[in-house]
Design a protein around this nucleic acid. Structure first.
Lengths: 279, 279
DNA sequence: TGTTACATATTGACTAGATAATCGGTACTG
DNA sequence: CAGTACCGATTATCTAGTCAATATGTAACA
C-alpha cells in the first residue's frame, strides 16, 4: 500500500539535522530573570545536545538536582517536564530519568507507485543509511462507515455517504509503528476482495486496478500535530512525540477519486523520503 | 526557492483530518484510577473536540475549575499544562486560557520544479481551499561556514569543508512562518550573486542553472520533532507545536549534489501537498 | 536451590499556601 | 480631553511538605 512494506527499512543512529552550528537560545538572552525551572532545563538540554549526556544515559535524581541548584523538588520536576514535552528525556518510574534514544525509519510513499528507485542518486542515498531486515506484521479490520467530512470532501461524496474503511495497524517486532486507514467508495469495491479483512499480497492498488479503477495520479497531503490520547494509546507513544497525518487521494485517469488513505506516523520512528524530477 | 512563495497561499479554517469517528480514548478506559489532573484535562479536551468549547473561546479560571472539581489549583494547572503541551489551548497571561485556533497554509515543494499545477485534479484540489492574497516578506543572511555533518554528508563533502550558507526567515504579516537555510559548495557559487544577501527574483535554482549547474533531480526528506528553544524563539512558536524538518538535496544531471536546503516548518501553520503520477 | 516476602529508592500525584508579573480597566490629574 | 497612576484579576513561579505506586535488589524461607 504505502512505501513502508516494500521499501527498505533502516534506522539512523546519528541524529542528523539538528543543527549544531546554532548556538545560544532563549536561555542565554535574559539570563538573570529566567525562572529557575527553565534554567535547570536549559542546563540539562545543553548537556544533552552537546553530548555530555549520551542517549540512554541516566540523569541525577530529582532530589539530587534540587539539592545541586538549591530549589524545591517540584521546581526540578517542572524543568524535567519541559524536557519530557520536548521529547529529549523520558521518565521510567521509579528508575529515574533517561536521555531519549532517537532513531528514524525510512518511509517512502513513492514506492507504491514506482516499483524501484528511479535514479542512481536515490540508490546511493538509501545505501548511506544502514539497512535492517525486520519483517512487519499487521492487523486489518474492514467496516462500512458513514464518510466523515474530510474523507467525503476528498472522495467528492456527500458527508455521511456509506463508504468502505479498511483499517490497519502495522507493527514491527510487536511494536506498532503506524496506523493506515484506507477508504473507498462503496459502489466501486462492493463484493470485491477489498471488503475482506485479509491481506492482499499484490496490494489494494492492484486490486483496485483489476476492478477497472487503476490509479493514474495521487495527491499527498501532510500535516503534523500532537497526538490525541487515542492515538497515543494505539501507537504507545511517549510524551513529546508529535505525529504526522499523511492523506493520499488516488485518482483514475478520468480524474475520479477512488481511494483516500489516512496514515498516522509517529514522530520518533519515521522519516519521509521523496524523489523529485525537474520538468 | 521552495513552494511557499510561488504557490497559492491558503488557509483551512476547517480542522480537517482529526478523525471524528474515533471515539473514546485512554480517558474512559480506566475511569476510576485516572489521576485528577488527567480527568480534568480529558473533560476539557472532550469539550473542545466536540465543539462545546469553540476555537478562541475562553476557559474558566484555574480557581473556578479547582473549585468545580474540588481540587487544589496546582492540580488544575497540571491538567491545563497537558492541554497546552498537546497544542489544544494557549495561556494568555493574565487574561486566562483560550481554545487554540488552528489554520493551515499550503506548502508545495514541487512548485519549485514544476511551473504550474500539473493536472486538473491539483487545480481543483487547491481551489477547494480558500485562497488569500497575502504578501510574504523575508530577511536573508549569507555566510561562509564549516559544513555541519548532516549537510556535508548530503553534499558529499568532508565535514568542516567551507560552504556557503544562505539563511532566510520568511514572514507573512510580520509573523515568521518558516526558516529556510540553503547550502552550496563554495567552488560552485564563488563570486556569484548567490553570495550576496539580496533577493534573487528568478530564484537561486535558476541562478545555479545559469552557473552551469542546473538541477535535474532532488531528494526530499522530512522528519518531525518538537522545536529547540532557539527555533521556538526564531519562529515565535507556542508550546505544543511540533516542527517538520524538510531537507532538499538537489543534483545535476551528472548526479552531483549542488544544493542542500534545510527548512523548518512550524506545525500549526503549514500543510505539505505533493502530487504524484503513476509510472 | 528456588521462591517468596520485604525494604528501599525513585518518581507520580497532590495540598495549601506565598510572592511576582502582567494585562485591562478605572479613577485621578493636568 | 489626554495622559498617568493605581487597582484588581489572573496566571507564573516557587516552597515544603505528604502519601501513593512501582521497579529492583535483598533477605528470609521452604
Amino acid at each position: 500500500m504505502s512505501g513502508l512494506v516494500s521499501s527498505p527499512l533502516a534506522t539512523l543512529t546519528k541524529d542528523i539535522g539538528v543543527s549544531t552550528e546554532v548556538k545560544s537560545g532563549v536561555d542565554t538572552m535574559r539570563g538573570s530573570t529566567l525562572p529557575a525551572y527553565q534554567r535547570i532545563a536549559s542546563a540539562i538540554r545543553t548537556k544533552i545536545t552537546s553530548g555530555e549526556l549520551a542517549p540512554g544515559e541516566q540523569l541525577p535524581t530529582e532530589h539530587e538536582i534540587a539539592e545541586q541548584y538549591g530549589v524545591a523538588r517540584q521546581t526540578v520536576r517542572n524543568g524535567l517536564a519541559l524536557l519530557v514535552s520536548e521529547g529529549l528525556i523520558v521518565s521510567q518510574r521509579p528508575r529515574g530519568h533517561f536521555v531519549r534514544r532517537r532513531e528514524h525509519m525510512i518511509y517512502r510513499p513513492q514506492a507504491e507507485s514506482r516499483p524501484q528507485p528511479a535514479s542512481p542518486e536515490m540508490d546511493r542515498f538509501c545505501q548511506q543509511i544502514t539497512e535492517e531486515g525486520r519483517t512487519p506484521t499487521q492487523t486489518i479490520d474492514v467496516s462500512l462507515i458513514a464518510a466523515p467530512a474530510d474523507i467525503a470532501q476528498r472522495l467528492e461524496l456527500d458527508e455521511g455517504t456509506l463508504i468502505v474503511a479498511r483499517r490497519r495497524v502495522r507493527s514491527i517486532n510487536g511494536e506498532p509503528v503506524n496506523i493506515n486507514d484506507s477508504h473507498f467508495p462503496l459502489e466501486i469495491v462492493k463484493d470485491s476482495e477489498i471488503m475482506s479483512p485479509a491481506d492482499i499480497p499484490r496490494g489494494t492498488n492492484q486490486a483496485l486496478a483489476d476492478l477497472g479503477y487503476a490509479q493514474d495520479r495521487a495527491i499527498d497531503e501532510y500535516y503534523w500535530r500532537m497526538p490525541t490520547p487515542e492515538e497515543s494509546h494505539r501507537l504507545s507513544l511517549g510524551a513529546g512525540t508529535p505525529v504526522v497525518m499523511h492523506i493520499v487521494t488516488g485518482y483514475t485517469v478520468d480524474g475520479r477519486p477512488v481511494r483516500c488513505t489516512r496514515n498516522v506516523l509517529p514522530g520518533d520512528r519515521h522519516m519521509i523520503v521523496y524523489e523529485r524530477k525537474w520538468e
